[in-house]
Amino acid sequence: MVRGVRGATTVEKNEKSEILEATYELFDTMQKQNSYNPEDISHVIISMTQDLNAAFPAVAMRQLKDYDLVPVMCTQEVPVPGSLEKCIRVMVTINTSKGQGEINHVYLNEAIRLRPDLSLTNKVDSR
C-alpha cells in the first residue's frame, strides 16, 4: 500500500543554516515516528513559503543515511494571504502495510497550527 506522510515546520529567519537544520529535524522525526527506510520511499515533495529562498531544503534530506537515491522535488507553496509564514512542508510517499490511522504526521514549531488534529502530540495524548 502507498501512503503519504505529511510534515511541516517553521523557521524564524530566511537563513540557509536555519532552513537546513529545521528540515533535517523534520525528516529525521518523520522517519523515526513512522519506521520507514529510504528504500520504502517512492518520492518526496517539499514546499516552502515565498519568504524562504536561502536554501534548497532537499539538501538537508541528503544528509540522512541512504537518502542519496530518493527522488525529491522542491516547489513554492501557494501564497495565500494570511497563511503561515516561513513554513516548510513535506510529503513523503512510502510503501507500507500501515493503515492511514497508523501514520504519524509530524508538525513542528509553529506548523502545529496547520493541523493540530493530526499533530503527533495530540495523537499520543489521545491514546
Rank of each mutant, 00 (worst) to 15 (best):
G4V: 07
L118H: 12
N95R: 08
P71S: 08
Y107G: 08
V78Y: 15
R113W: 10
L20Y: 00
D66Y: 11
M61K: 01
V90I: 12
P79F: 12
I88Q: 07
E39L: 05
R127Q: 13
V78R: 12
N37K: 13
L64G: 03
F56Y: 12
L20H: 02
R113T: 14
N122P: 01
L64Y: 02
D117I: 06
I88G: 05
T121V: 14
C87G: 06
L69V: 06
E85Q: 13
A8V: 11
Q33C: 12
V72P: 09
Q50P: 15
V124Q: 14
G99D: 06
L69R: 09
R89P: 01
L84I: 05
D117T: 14
T29A: 15
R127W: 12
H105S: 02
T121L: 13
G4K: 10
E110I: 02
P81C: 14
C74G: 11
V92K: 07
P79Q: 06
L114P: 02
K16R: 15
K16I: 04
L69A: 04
L118K: 13
A22H: 00
M48V: 14
I112M: 10
D68P: 01
S83H: 14
L26S: 05
R62W: 00
I94D: 08
M1D: 15
G7D: 09
I112H: 07
V80R: 13
L69P: 00
K16C: 08
V5M: 08
A8N: 10
T9M: 04
E25F: 01
M48D: 05
T9L: 01
N104M: 14
